[in-house]
Design a binder for these strands. Structure first.
Length: 271
DNA sequence: AATGGCACCAACCGCCGCCAC
DNA sequence: AGTGGCGGCGGTTGGTGCCAT
């Protein structure tokens, strides 16, 4: 028996979201929270499927999203995490509070891939492209230095299990993932150890400096002064990134929604 | 000014895993 | 144990804006 579609596609609106739809969705979640995505469009009066609402919320409307381009430091982190986790974008995104998996995936596909190619590295394996030729000739179990190891010895992370089929990034099934889990966990642990040596407070403040100017960069702009900055936001008042991550659930307390709502009202009046 | 190519990104599609029944 | 529904994920596509010609 085939799967039922996630929604009745007849009468379901598709394509870009309008500000009015955004407003409806935000108001609904603001007042009701998120219980069941399937019921959200019906109850909020949207002609969208639940999945579409979920995606719009996660990728665009969530109040904790960090807008703006990726810094070079973030790109480097993405590259390292990708070498450990492969195309598991949601896992990678958990290391970047305020960034979505979709955003990271898009950035990888449009920018980082090119950047690595320009550096003569294979985007999937992070190995020098010439080395890949040897690799394809049967040296599949050989270990290679991490692509960034030229910067310093402390970044020497062996990438053994990632490329067990040479060119594909990651095994697809959970079973295969389990086979490699131990090695990945070890390597992820190594990476996280390295990350923990970075002063996260300064990292956050650097992020704030580099991205604040383009806090909202998508189809419409919000006045950044009315949007809680990293420094002002209660989400960031803790001492550590981890504390911030732990507080993510408090986002649904909506303490910071009023300014955003004001922006929507402003935009509506402007139209 | 027109247009073709390219880059970027929001959104969709289809599959998978989990969970309730 | 089997089945169906739902949420989540990753791959892909289509629209839009920018830039060079």
């Amino acid at each position: 028996m085939g799967r039922q579609p996630c929604c009745d596609k007849v009468g379901v609106k598709r394509g870009p979201w309008t500000i009015e739809e955004d407003h409806k969705l935000m108001n609904f979640i603001l007042n009701n929270g998120i219980h069941c995505w399937r019921t959200v469009p019906k109850l909020s009066g949207l002609l969208r499927c639940g999945k579409s609402c979920r995606l719009r919320w996660i990728n665009y409307l969530r109040p904790d999203l960090k807008r703006g381009g990726f810094t070079e430091m973030e790109e480097d982190q993405i590259i390292q995490l990708h070498s450990l986790l492969g195309n598991r974008w949601s896992k990678i995104a958990t290391h970047f509070p305020g960034r979505t998996d979709n955003e990271i995936k898009n950035h990888w596909n449009t920018r980082i891939k090119k950047r690595l190619k320009l550096l003569g590295l294979d985007p999937m394996t992070k190995k020098p492209i010439e080395q890949m030729e040897h690799f394809d000739n049967g040296e599949k179990n050989k270990t290679y230095p991490h692509p960034n190891t030229s910067k310093g010895s402390e970044e020497n992370i062996e990438i053994k299990s990632l490329d067990n089929n040479g060119t594909k990034d990651m095994p697809k099934t959970e079973g295969k993932i389990e086979e490699n889990k131990v090695t990945w966990d070890v390597e992820l642990h190594n990476y996280e150890n390295q990350c923990s040596q970075v002063e996260m407070g300064s990292w956050i403040s650097q992020e704030n400096n580099t991205s604040a100017s383009s806090y909202c960069s998508s189809s419409f702009s919000l006045d950044e002064s009315s949007y809680p900055s990293v420094g002002q936001s209660p989400y960031f008042q803790g001492d550590s990134l981890q504390q911030w991550v732990d507080n993510m659930d408090s986002i649904l307390s909506w303490d910071n929604f009023n300014p955003l709502e004001d922006d929507f009202l402003f935009l509506e009046n402007k139209q």
